[in-house]
Amino acid sequence: MRRQLIAAAAAAILVLGGTATARAAGGGGEIKAHDWSFSGVFGTFDRGALQRGYQVYKEVCSSCHSMNLLYYRNLTEIGFDADSVKDIAAEYEVADGPDGEGEMFMRPAKPSDRFVAPFANEQAARASNNGALPPDLSLIVEARFDGPDYIYSVLTGYEDEAPEGVELGEGMNYNHAFPGNQIAMAPPLFEDAVEYADGTAATVEQMAEDVTTFLTWAAEPMLETRKRMGVKVILFLIVFSALLYAVKRKVWSDLH
């Protein structure tokens, strides 16, 4: 049986290896590996980073990037209490209606509303951004290879000057992490772009780390539940399989 287990493991590695080469074909710029609070089997989101990250999104990213899959109510999951979520939502206006007269009207957003997008539609977004479309950020971490490292690397990967011999397009910026190295987004973060309430120094690296943590949570809010359940499920299965193995030995003992 041991030989078969080894062979099965080898076959599994080959399958996984095949998938890994399929992903390596993605291509791109230089991605820096970073230590994340949420990586690993027992990883959880750093609550402080999540809230600071939301602040960075709100004060910096959200002027161009939507997050259409999130509701204001979701913010209670990262540690904001119900009242502050109401206050945050009320800072935005949403179209509602029709009212009794058949007219649409604007009202302050409620926790049950989706994050209000900066632009009414794709055309408006392109018109304000030199023809480029700022992507929705709800799933951006899932939608890129090595999502968190990629986002962090792009946010911290800007160069003031393009290296010699690189011709930048009109309105483009040089970024050594972005595929092709030319990115339409101007450097979004600079020292003290936000003022953190908890006194954390707002360096570019700190803000990039915080907002990446927030975006990872936004892409998969169930990450912590998933890992916590996974540890229990696998521990159970290990004990259960061991018992089954003992039963199997017992049942088969009259044959050997």
Binding site: K227, L237, I238, L244
Partner: peptide, 21 residues
């Protein structure tokens, strides 16, 4: 039946690693 069940236990561990992690 018992041999298949033991195999199922091992397989579910493999399955769960992907689903949860």
């Amino acid at each position: 039946t018992v041999k298949d069940l033991f195999g199922l236990g091992l397989f579910l561990i493999f399955f769960a690693v992907f689903v949860f992690f």
